[in-house]
Amino acid sequence: MKPKQLVEKWVAVFNSGDAEALADFYHDDAVNHQVANEPINGKNAILKMFQDEFAQADMTCIVENIFEDGEWGILEWKDPLGLRGCGFFHVIDGKIKLQRGYWDKLSFLKQHNLPIE
C-alpha cells in the first residue's frame, strides 16, 4: 500500500475510535512522536496511547490535504473545534515505521476541558 492510501485508511480508522485496528497500521518497533509529548516506542505502547486518548476525548480528523513523497505520507488536518495540525508518516513495507505530529496541545486540552499539565 502506498503512503497516501495508508494515511487515508488510517484517518478512517482513527475517526472510528478503534485503537486496536489503528495499532495494526504500525510496525512492532514503530515510533509515534507527537512533538507536544514524549515519543511512544513500539506497537503495544502506541495501542495504549490511542486507547488512553480515545477514552479522554472525542477526536475527529478532518483531512485538508494528503501528500506523498517517496516513503512518506503527509497529512494536513483540522478538527471540528478548529484545532489544526499535520502529521508525517514514514511507511515501509505497507506499515508505519515513524509517525511525527505537530499540533497545539494547550488548545487541545482547553477545547476538551482536560487538565492543563
Rank of each mutant, 00 (worst) to 15 (best):
K2P: 12
K2D: 12
L6N: 04
V7Y: 09
V7N: 09
E8Y: 10
S16V: 02
A19H: 02
E20Y: 05
E20G: 00
A21P: 00
L22Q: 06
H27F: 00
D28W: 04
A30H: 02
N32F: 15
N32M: 15
H33K: 12
H33I: 01
Q34I: 00
Q34F: 00
Q34C: 07
A36E: 03
A36R: 00
N37G: 12
P39Y: 02
P39H: 09
I40W: 06
I40A: 05
N41P: 04
N41F: 15
A45G: 10
A45S: 13
D52S: 12
E53Y: 07
A55W: 04
Q56C: 10
A57Y: 00
D58H: 13
M59N: 12
N65V: 09
I66N: 05
I66F: 03
F67I: 11
F67C: 11
F67Q: 09
D69Y: 13
E71L: 07
W72F: 15
W72E: 12
I74L: 15
L75Y: 07
L75G: 08
E76G: 02
W77L: 04
K78S: 13
D79C: 03
P80L: 07
L81C: 08
L83T: 11
L83F: 07
L83K: 05
R84N: 06
C86Y: 10
F89S: 03
F89D: 07
F89W: 10
V91K: 04
I92R: 06
I96F: 07
K97A: 04
Y102Q: 12
W103K: 02
W103F: 12
D104M: 06
K105Q: 13
K105G: 11
L106S: 09
F108P: 01
L109Y: 06
K110C: 13
K110L: 14
H112A: 02
L114N: 09
I116T: 12
I116V: 15
I116A: 08
